[in-house]
Design a protein around this nucleic acid. Structure first.
Lengths: 211, 211
DNA sequence: ACACGATTAAAACAGATGTTTTAATCATAC
DNA sequence: GTATGATTAAAACATCTGTTTTAATCGTGT
């Protein structure tokens, strides 16, 4: 290869532009120009624009889900050994923490986070079916774990609250920095760790509240 | 006019298609075909595709905000007369209830809800700037009211929790019906009133929880 | 040095996009 | 009835889209 991996450069550029402008508003010419590659390179390396989107998503989502799953299983096992129920907060943490910590890996991963947040926001979109295909098993496992940690909730209530929680998460994933109506004395650049705890405060309270 | 208001028919078709497929994935030809109008009618009546989007949003958003504002001010006044602080739950209700009740007005308004939910999900999108221009004053008023109802919270904390709440709301606005991973025994067609109370349970708990 | 497969480059493809232009048609007032 | 302004219709506009095709180039093993 002449330059360090055209394929990689295209993935990076696509991730950035998809995240920033959305799938439909991003053209292959925009991507290949940014990546300093030839237009035909996308179809040569990936086959189609849609396949490129899938490659962009999968590259980071699969490893991320590995981490989330590992953290979750470790937690469940520890709780079982201690003869206790897993705490709702820690179950949520297993899902959220690895996600938001991606931001500490630099701005590349930050684009990915925004892209996923966007994907979650387009019900019928192309990205959604790709996303679900790679998320479904983990989501079901999380649901099981949450049910275990909140035995007082009906499945119906649990579903909706998990739904709300996912809404919160996808929101902060895509609305990082630069958001509407922020009062003067508010620090928008909250460190990741504080954001995580803030988020867990909020959602755990919502999950655990009595009806 | 030959047929009942071409302008109206275009607005309806655009609302439906924008909500369903997003702004960029919707073509003027798709809109005019659905509306049974001529292609040039859009530019004749509205000027441009972007101006059409604004017209679609404004048509329902402005009246909706009137209602939200009315409900909020009535609540604040009542609390002041009683010498009490407004309750956080009721402040949130003033914002959320009129929104979700739009669904009871039939499927047209339902498209609008999905469109707004989508808009909130595209930080840098064209729709966002339109939306913010018409939302800003009300959002600030809501923020004030929430601050009043939760005097123990710092502005910083309040901002983030309101941020989470908006995330929840935009999520359920666009993910009505047909959503991923729903367990068998869960009834996805929750009546609007129950959904509202569910939502208020969850978000109020998150807003009020101690740190 | 040569050959071969992988990669890149440039051009062309057919089709779709938002917008404009030019005529035709309609409704209404005189 | 005819003139006038608003609306509709059909076609053309230039530009952009994702994808293919055809050559050229590169790297590597012999």
């Amino acid at each position: 290869m002449s330059q360090p991996d055209t394929k990689q450069r295209i993935l990076d550029a696509a991730e950035h532009l998809f995240a920033r402008n959305g799938y439909h508003a991003t053209s292959l010419r925009g991507i290949t120009t940014t990546a300093d590659a030839n237009l035909a390179a996308v179809n040569y390396h990936f086959g189609s624009k849609e396949a490129l989107l899938e490659a962009v998503i999968v590259r980071r989502l699969d490893p991320l889900n590995e981490i989330r799953r590992g953290q979750l299983e470790a937690l469940l096992q520890k709780a079982e050994l201690a003869g206790e129920l897993p705490s709702c907060r820690e179950v949520l943490r297993a899902f959220v923490e690895p996600t938001l910590r991606l931001r500490q890996q630099g701005s590349e991963a930050e684009d990915f986070i925004a892209l996923i947040g966007r994907t979650l926001a387009e019900p019928r979109g192309i990205a959604m079916s790709i996303f679900l295909r790679h998320m479904q098993p983990l989501l079901q496992r999380i649901f099981q774990a949450l049910a275990l940690s909140l035995p007082a909730l009906t499945e119906q209530d649990l579903f909706w609250r998990m739904h709300f929680t996912m809404g919160c998460l996808s929101h902060i994933m895509r609305c990082h920095e630069r958001y509407s109506m922020v009062p003067d004395n508010v620090n928008i650049d909250l460190p990741v760790d504080e954001l995580i705890e803030h988020f867990l405060d909020f959602t755990t309270a919502g999950m655990e509240v009595a009806r």
